[in-house]
Structures are given as structure tokens and as C-alpha cells.
Computed example of a mutant assay.
Amino acid sequence: MNAVEINTLDYTILAETAADVGEREALLDRAMGAGRKRKSSEKLRRGRRPSEGLAFVARDADGRVVGTVRLWDVHAGGDRRALLLGPLAVDPSVKSGGIGSALMQHAIAEAKRLGHAAILLVGDAPYYSRFGFSVEKTGRLAMPGPYERHRLLALELADGALDAVHGVLRPAGRKVRPRVELARAA
């Protein structure tokens, strides 16, 4: 979906395109630092593409990427599917302007509209609880690699979607095509 989703006086939320990747990566480096690629969540994203239709950027009035959020397909214990949200980032120069909240609300609404049943993330409960995330359904789930258990949060988009799930999250969904394969396809 390339249409404008949310338009305010300060920013517009759009579906991410291939042309946004460089700006998004630079934004993530500014907002999260170089260590961002060593996180456990990154192990689930590495070599994968975001879930279809669930990668968004916020652009300011000058067209600059000032926010980003992506959701990724994962196996949440056995064959149960869920989404892993992240990273959510806003340019430090415009923090506290509501862009992060708007991106979250938009991502959740789109995930629900597309029929997904649950979203997981690793983050600060005081921030994400306002969107309905909690540790209530994550007690028997684990991330691959080190993480702080109290930061693994979930939001059910369909009642009971995470009932009785247990195990370590595993990547699912579309794989990134190697550059050699892409060059042959062109």
C-alpha cells in the first residue's frame, strides 16, 4: 500500500518503499546506536523481509524520514504465527511529537486489518502498555539469545491467539533474496 495513511501538519505516514531503506537505516543508527544490530530481536529479523504490508515510515513536511516501524512474521511456539514489532524509532530531533504513537497505532490497526492475531515486541512496558501490550501472555515464550524477560510483551488482536503458546520465537515469513539472485532477475 503506497497511499498516504495518516497526514498531519507535521508528518505523513506511508508504506515503506525500497527507496526509503537508506534513510531508514541512517535514522535507526541515530536513534538506537550501533549496538542495535546485536539485539535478540535482530536474530529473528536477519535474512527476512518485513511482513507483507507492515513496514511504515513517517516523513516530515520536507519529505525526510523521521520515523519508522516494521512488523515481522515469527513462529510463537510451535506453528502458531505472530508478528514481532520493531524497531520503532523516531528521529531524536523530533522526539515527543507524537510520531512514535501514531506509527504504533497505525501498525497495530494495519496488522489487525490484515488478519494477524498477535503482536510481540521487546520494549519498555510503561511506553507500550498504553497500546495494550503486557507480559500477561509471554510467560512461556522466549527470545533467541539474551533479553530481559520483563521486556517481552504481547498484544492479542484476536482473543486467545496466544493461549497455551510456549517455546522460543523463531523467524518465519519471506526471506531476503540474495543480491546475485536479484541481479539475475533484472
Rank of each mutant, 00 (worst) to 15 (best):
V4W: 00
E5S: 09
E5M: 13
T8N: 09
T8C: 03
D10E: 14
D10M: 10
T12N: 02
T12Y: 00
I13A: 06
I13N: 08
L14G: 01
A15H: 13
A15L: 07
E16C: 01
E16H: 03
T17H: 10
T17R: 15
E23N: 11
R24D: 11
R24M: 14
E25Y: 09
E25M: 12
A26L: 12
L27V: 08
L28G: 04
L28K: 09
D29S: 11
R30F: 07
M32W: 13
M32S: 05
A34C: 04
G35V: 08
R36D: 11
R38K: 13
S40G: 15
E42G: 03
E42Q: 14
L44G: 02
L44N: 06
L44Y: 03
L44C: 06
R48L: 12
R48C: 07
R49I: 11
P50S: 11
P50G: 05
P50N: 04
E52Q: 14
E52C: 10
G53H: 06
G53W: 07
A55C: 13
F56I: 02
R59P: 02
A61L: 06
G63F: 09
R64W: 03
V65W: 09
V66S: 04
L71W: 01
V74Y: 10
A76E: 10
G77R: 05
G77Y: 04
G78F: 07
R81F: 07
R81C: 05
A82N: 06
G86R: 03
P87Y: 03
L88E: 12
L88N: 05
L88P: 03
A89K: 03
P92T: 06
K95T: 14
S96V: 09
I99G: 04
S101L: 09
M104Q: 12
A107F: 05
I108L: 08
A111L: 11
K112L: 05
L114I: 00
L114R: 15
A118P: 01
I119K: 01
L120I: 07
V122R: 02
D124L: 04
A125K: 12
A125P: 10
A125N: 08
P126H: 07
P126I: 01
Y127C: 02
Y128D: 07
S129T: 14
F133A: 05
F133C: 05
S134N: 08
S134D: 11
E136K: 14
L141M: 04
L141T: 02
L141H: 01
A142R: 13
M143E: 07
G145P: 06
P146E: 15
Y147N: 02
R149E: 14
H150W: 08
L152C: 10
L153M: 07
L153D: 09
A154S: 15
E156L: 05
D159P: 13
G160A: 05
G160Q: 06
A161Q: 02
L162V: 08
V165D: 01
V165G: 00
H166D: 09
G167A: 09
V168L: 00
P171C: 05
A172P: 01
G173N: 01
R174W: 00
K175S: 12
K175I: 12
R177K: 11
P178Q: 00
P178E: 02
R179P: 00
E181Y: 03
L182I: 12
L182V: 13
L182E: 10
L182F: 00
A183S: 09
R184H: 10
R184N: 08
R184E: 12
